[in-house]
Structures are given as structure tokens and as C-alpha cells.
Design a protein around this nucleic acid. Structure first.
Lengths: 177, 177
DNA sequence: GTCTATAATTTGATAGAC
DNA sequence: GTCTATCAAATTATAGAC
């Protein structure tokens, strides 16, 4: 991936996480990156393309930094603990919602390609968690536990984001096991 | 409240719940209600005013339909069960996110008055749940349980909304007690 | 209360030079 | 790859007639 394209994706990620898909423009991005809006269109022809690319970029970055649950277990680490920490870091360091949590909330008003990539985030995360819970306590109920954990984390982010305090996040996620 | 104002609020609620605060315009509202956009401005001078009014309208409608937890207990009903059902109805009947859940996710990009009314939703709902849990099992830990339940419900809505299926909602909220 | 008309700005997108 | 220039449409908002 091009350096400029990464700059654009980073700027777009920041802006979408601030106010959603409709809260950024090609000019906003261009100003932040230091080029003109026509040049942004060269890299991502339409806004829909850029939106879909940002969602995919975020999903890869998030799960990539985490590693596979099987690897974590081999390294003697608790995958669920690592997963919760990844969400908490996203909230504490960036002071922002999960990008795909926000897009998931807005999904009924998004263009098709963005919808598709947003769904991929949820599917891949549910798969990751299901594998983690299967490793931990066997296959029985792993899928349900995965949904519960993902829902609780996304919801804890919303409540903390809305009220502007991270204590609510910690209070909410302490029931995850 | 005026009939026309209620029509406007209802239209705005539907549109915000579809794609967020930036996904509706005064013309969209006007078309749906059957007047001109200038007339919408007569009722709600700015978009910020309308956004804040919609959030307050939604909060009142949601908690009003539910009733107070103390009343529910007297009537022999389980307040927490009733609360979960209210969320499920919002998802199943309207096929849409919680309005304030969506605004809470977007909050860092919203104008001040909308931010204020969105926070009121979360504060009033946490207060409602805290009272319900206090009635149920005493004051100890009631606040934490309230945060956990609200977070799980908002997150379950996001996951179900994003993947377009209500089974995930049911799988997630079954751990609420 | 609702209308017409319109101002001022922003937006997504394209053509074509360099 | 990036630029200038530009377009058509949409957006929030206001003035003033009825």
C-alpha cells in the first residue's frame, strides 16, 4: 500500500470515528494529508470506495495487532483478556469509538460496499472470539459467548464515549470471562 | 406539543435511526411531512435545535412507555425483563438501532445541544436501571449492574443491526438477570 | 404557519494540463 | 500523481409575502 494512501486512510479513520461516515468530506481529508481533493479521488474514486477501504483497513489493523487466538494460547496468554485490552486501548488511546461499531450503528444509511466491509468486521471478530472460547472451554456455547462479549464491548464503548468517561467501560466489561 | 411538530419529530427520529445525525436534511423532513423546508425552520430554527429535540423526544417516549421500576414491582412485574423487552421491541418493530445509541456513537462530531440531550438519555437510563437493580437485590453493586445491562443492550443492538439478524440480539441478552 | 425565493456554503465528482 | 478549474447538486438558513 502506498504511503499517501495510508495517510488518507488514517485521516479518514480519525474522522469517521469522530462523527460517522457522513462527518467527513474529500476536502477535509485533502487538507489533513496536504494534497487537493482531486488527488484523493485519484486514490479512491468515490466516497463509497474510500469508506469501504477504511473499514477493511481498520479490521485488518485491529485483528492483525491482536494475533490469532491459537498463537496467544501457545504463548501462554489468555486470548479473551488480550481481546478486551485491545478494545480498551482503542477507547483510551484514541479517545474514540470502535470505527466499525459506529458504522454498524449507521449501517442502514450506508452505501453497499461500506455495508459489506462493516459486516466483514463483525463476522471476523465473532469468528475470532468463537475460536478463543472454543479453545478455552470447548465448543459448547462458544458462539453465544462470542456474541455476548462482542456486544458488551461495543456497548461499553458507546456508553463510555457518550458520557465521556472510561470508568463505565471498566465497570461494564468486568463481567467478561 | 403541536401536531406538526410531532410529525417532524417522528420523521426525524426515523431518519436519524437510519443513518445518524448527518443522514437527514430539512428538505427530507419537509417532504415526508408534506410542507416546505422553510416551515420546518419555523418549528425548529436550526438543525442543532431539531437534533436535540429529537433526542429528548425519544428519551421521554422510551422511558415513558416503560413506566417507573417502582410501579412495575408493585404491579408484580420484573422491571429488568420489561426493560430488555423494550429494547427488543425497538429493534424488532422498527428494525432500527436505538436512536441515542447511534447518537452516542457519533457524539464527538455532534453540536453541543445534541450532545447534552444524548447524555441525558444515558444518565436517565442508568438511573432507571440502578433503581431497578436496587429494588431487586439491594444497593450493593446496583450501579455496576446497570452499566453492564445498558452496555450489553446497546451493543447487542449494534451487532444485530450490523448483521441484519435479531438472533444475535437474543443470544447476547440472555445473560442479563 | 406556510409559502416563494434566494443567499452562502459545501459536497462529490470530472476534465484536462503538467 | 498532483494540480487548477469547474460543475451540478445539496445543504442550512433567512427575508418577506400571504
Amino acid at each position: 500500500m502506498d504511503n499517501k494512501e495510508q495517510d488518507i486512510l488514517r485521516a479518514a479513520e480519525r474522522m469517521v470515528r469522530e462523527g460517522g461516515y457522513n462527518a467527513f468530506s474529500f476536502r477535509d481529508i485533502a487538507n489533513e494529508v496536504g494534497i487537493r481533493s482531486a488527488s484523493v479521488h485519484y486514490h479512491f474514486p468515490t466516497k463509497e470506495d474510500l469508506g469501504a477501504a477504511v473499514a477493511a483497513y481498520y479490521t485488518d489493523k485491529f485483528l492483525g495487532a491482536l494475533g490469532e487466538p491459537e498463537e496467544l494460547v501457545i504463548a501462554g496468554k489468555d486470548p479473551i483478556k488480550a481481546y478486551v485490552k485491545a478494545f480498551r486501548d482503542a477507547l483510551a488511546k484514541d479517545k474514540r469509538m470502535c470505527l466499525c461499531g459506529l458504522l454498524g450503528a449507521e449501517i442502514n444509511g450506508l452505501p453497499p460496499k461500506v455495508v459489506g466491509e462493516t459486516r466483514v468486521f463483525f463476522e471476523r471478530n465473532l469468528d475470532w472470539l468463537t475460536r478463543a472460547y472454543t479453545l478455552q472451554k470447548g465448543e459448547k456455547g462458544a458462539k453465544d459467548k462470542a456474541v455476548q462479549t462482542l456486544a458488551l464491548l461495543e456497548g461499553a464503548m458507546i456508553v463510555s464515549n457518550a458520557l465521556g468517561n472510561n470508568e463505565n467501560f471498566d465497570a461494564a466489561v468486568q463481567i467478561i470471562s
